[in-house]
Amino acid sequence: MQKSTVSKALKSGAIWGFILLELIFFSIAGEHLSLSDTAFMDGENMLLLLKQSAPIGIIAMGMTIVMVNGNIDLSVGATFAIAAIVLLDSMTWPIFAGLGDGVIPVAWLLALTVGTLLGALNGLIVWKTGVDAFIVTLGSMLGYRGIVFMFNGENPTSHLNWTLVDFAEAEFLGFATATWFLLGVTLVMWFVMARTVHGRNAYAIGDNREAAVNAGIRVGPHMMINFAIIGFLAALSAVVFYSEAGSVNPNDGQLYELWVITAVVLGGTKITGGAGNVIGTFGGVIAIQLLRKGLGHIGADTSTVNLAVGLILIAVLFLDKQLNLKGKEELKV
């Protein structure tokens, strides 16, 4: 019993320990290797890091509930791009011409609705066909990305609305708008997963689906709601990011699904479902962003960053497996 509490504490705290390690490493390494004069642990730098974590982080919160539920969603990057196009393009539509800046909430609403519907469609297919979520969303990842390219070919879609940019670049209590959205989404998803019946049922389904069915939980509709949630959050992520950027390339959001899943898994969510929480995911998001930023700080290029993240992900999962072993007499597989 004692041993298991120790290993549990180790596990739940592991991601924060890892973040601490990163901070120490990059601070020391930064002194010797960095080209810039500013310290890595500079306040400005850390605030920027939080803001840059937002696009991945917001989606990761949705991925947490989907993965705890025992599913996965690979289409979030494509949904992200579609929502971005809807957001920017709808502001130029003639029917909204008379609205002035009133077009902003309309465009936001449109983008979020489209994202939610695309997510719900994934969920509906998973529910009604019983096909594995991995396959369904692999298909929709390709399909949704196809829609992105159908819209404007290889060309970017752009529209700058300065009111919107001002809003997006605003800071409140030192945090940027995007950071506030990330924190808000984290808080809401924490509440949903830890405090509501829907959230607790998500754990039950991911842990033991048959038990959930036996207990009369309607698994299909439940999963569809979670896919709608992640669709909404992918769109929200796009809304927050492109309000500032004002231009979207048809390739934007590619590989987001992999970064998101990496963050969620680093944060302790079981890939088979049933365990995990958004606080851990938040840690995972920060850890990855720190790594990307830190390696950049000491002069590593993107490919090195990817290599490092990949290695660390595998190392973390290996450690997790070791901590979970029940003892020597365990059956070898």
Binding site: R195, T196, V197, H198, R200, N201, Y203, A204, D207, N208, E210, A211, A212, N214, A215, G216, I217, G274, A275
Partner: peptide, 26 residues
């Protein structure tokens, strides 16, 4: 055993019928 191991005893016993407060809270 038709139980979800990661959940608490209470949640397992009332699985599917968790008592609710407003806004779907447990």
């Amino acid at each position: 055993l038709s139980l979800a191991e990661e959940l608490s005893v209470a949640e397992n016993i009332y699985l599917g019928e968790l008592p609710r407060k407003r806004f779907g809270r447990v």
